[in-house]
């Protein structure tokens, strides 16, 4: 079970990271285009500034799940290390469950939020805001799945390997 969860988390994360890399690349190109336009092309494109914000939100929010898969979201561990191992593990499992509840909350209210964007117009492309707002529930959904998987994978053991001095 723990192995399976770890593998599933890794597979999903690989797919998410590929999407995130593509979004980051688009983000870089978009901002360059905005600069080039103003300086060389003079097309006066209306969308690079707005699109950059939406790409940034999509990329960063999706990447939150990646940070979960790799346990990169930082918390304080000093207090936990003073506790006996079983209590520490139980607390860490409880924190994972609460984190899952948090992202489930964002997903639950994120869907109507994104759908509410359907009747609102973005200033660019004449598009609705739904595809951009969708970043929030989509990222929350992937994050929820990842928390569930890494919870099973680690079962509260993940802060036990202390990185070695000077390791980088």
């Amino acid at each position: 079970m723990r192995n399976w969860a770890g593998k599933a988390s890794g597979r999903i994360n690989a797919a998410v990271e590929a999407i995130v890399a593509a979004l980051m690349l688009l983000l870089v190109l978009d901002v360059w285009l905005g600069v080039m336009d103003r300086y060389f092309f003079h097309w006066q494109l209306p969308w690079p500034e707005e699109l950059a914000r939406y790409l940034m939100i999509w990329a960063a929010m999706l990447a939150v799940s990646s940070g979960i898969s790799r346990r990169e979201h930082i918390g304080l561990t000093a207090f936990l290390h003073k506790l006996p191992k079983p209590i520490r593990r139980a607390l860490l499992i409880a924190m994972d469950l609460l984190s899952l509840a948090l992202f489930a909350y964002v997903l639950w209210y994120g869907v109507p939020f994104a759908n509410g964007g359907a009747t609102r117009q973005a200033m660019i492309f004449g598009a609705s805001l739904r595809p951009f707002y969708a970043a929030i529930p989509a990222a929350a959904a992937v994050a929820s799945v990842q928390i569930a998987l890494v919870l099973l994978r680690d079962l509260g053991t993940h802060i036990e390997e202390i990185p070695e001095e000077g390791l980088l």
């Binding site: 103003r38 006066q44 209306p46 200033m123 660019i124």
Partner: peptide, 25 residues
């Protein structure tokens, strides 16, 4: 080169005057 809000009508008005219009945060 004039900064406008990200509002197509504002951009078009500036362009019709002969200016270049760029949205900027």
């Amino acid at each position: 080169r004039v900064r406008t809000m990200t509002l197509p009508s504002h951009q078009k008005i500036m362009q019709a005057l002969g200016a270049e219009a760029y949205p900027l945060a």
